[in-house]
Amino acid sequence: MLSGSAPRTSAAAQAPAVRQRRKHHLWVLYFYGSAIGKKAVMAVTGIVLLGFVLMHMVGNLKLYYPDAERHLNAYGEWLRTFGEPALPHTGFLWILRGGLILSFILHIHAAVSLTLMNRQARPIKYQGGRSYAAADYAARTMRWSGFIIGFYVLFHLADLTWGNANPDFIRGEPYNNLYYSFERVPVALVYIVANLLLGLHIYHGAWSLFQSLGLANPRFNQWRRTFAAVFAAAIVIGNVSFPIAVLAGAVDEPEHITGEARLIEHAHTLGTAAETLPGVTFHA
């Protein structure tokens, strides 16, 4: 026997918990199993979602065109018909939606599982409180802003895509839906708050993604923060202006100038008469 007694070593007394990770044979799962992998996925899906909110905001700027209703509705129509006949009707839109849904789910799944991991890493908080030296409000509230935005997105879909949260909803008439949605002050306020939170989320996220993907270089590091701030500001200013414009009366009431043909065609596609669509009101 080489050594003497070794049963009760201090190493055992002080040993912290070790998290055992499953070794996936599938490369992509193994990669996603690591926290850095998950952060990279959050960054990439974040970029997809950033692209979406940017396009979404820019598209909605058509609200300020002189002939806003026609332009906005035509844009909606374009999204549904783009790529035809190579793609089926709304095919392109569903590809976009598929990418968005996947990004959204992965973004949330990664965030939730990393949050759980991080909770385990500090089970006991500082009992005497703590003071932050660098983390700004945006960084510290990512989980809350993300959580609220997630729920807001569901409401937003119910309000403006599915229509069940909007009594004035007309499928295929985004201008109408948007107008009547924002005319309701509480909805407009919720929208504004959600967008401010989205701005906060982007302010940290659009900077953070560079770190997560390993994109750091003294030559452009200072621009990462500028980029995130400008991006967040653009999204917030653009998006928040819409309900304000509607409430301030700067946007014309919908005139359903989308054209009968389009509407009938649309109803036909759905196999329903336009008149029977839920929540449809003709103002004519």
């Binding site: 918990a17 850095i36 952060k39």
Partner: peptide
């Protein structure tokens, strides 16, 4: 990184 992640949390770029 593997050993690090078996004990510690993940980075959320707080810069603390």
């Amino acid at each position: 990184v593997e050993v690090m992640e078996s004990y510690f949390g993940s980075c959320t770029n707080y810069r603390e």
